[in-house]
């Protein structure tokens, strides 16, 4: 049944996982969300990278996030021709500001698009989209 197989295949783009970012993606597979903190100057950063962007120190602490945050801004996308997305319109894309103080781009799920508001408290949900990749999305806080 080739048609059924195609429907099941995950068609959206997947991240390229390399040695620098692997710990972050492995944590998401365990349904854990981390940001990084510089052990020298204390600056927080996301997405993960090997060096502090404020002082260039390589001494990095991984900080586990509780998963809570607020919607900083969002858009309900009604048109996207790209495979995977065109089948899931409309969808909500947002910048969420984590309680720990950094913003990440994500999708808002488990919420009708017309109810999404800036400032809405949200919580992380872990979407195991493939056996290798788990994406961090957010839903209204419960």
């Amino acid at each position: 049944m080739p048609q059924q197989k195609e429907q099941r295949a995950y068609r959206k783009p997947l991240p390229h996982i390399d040695e620098e970012n692997r710990p972050w993606w492995e944590a998401t597979q365990r349904h854990e969300l981390y940001i990084q903190k510089c052990r020298d100057c204390g600056d927080l950063r996301f997405h993960p990278r090997a060096l502090c962007t404020s002082c260039l120190s390589s001494r990095t602490e991984w900080v586990r996030c509780k998963g809570g945050g607020k919607i900083y801004t969002f858009t309900v996308t009604y048109q996207n021709q790209a495979a995977g997305f065109r089948e899931s319109l409309p969808y909500v894309m947002a910048w969420v500001e984590l309680d720990e103080g950094v913003k990440m781009l994500t999708n808002i799920v488990d919420c009708p698009p017309e109810q999404v508001k800036i400032g809405m408290p949200v919580e992380a949900v872990f979407d195991d989209v493939t056996p290798e990749v788990t994406l961090v999305k957010f839903r209204p806080a419960r």
Partner: peptide, 17 residues
């Protein structure tokens, strides 16, 4: 959108459309 890209920042954005 959503074709993906090779820069580190892209890996945390393109999956979300």
């Amino acid at each position: 959108g959503g074709h993906g890209g090779g820069d580190p920042c892209d890996q945390y954005e393109f999956p979300f459309g």
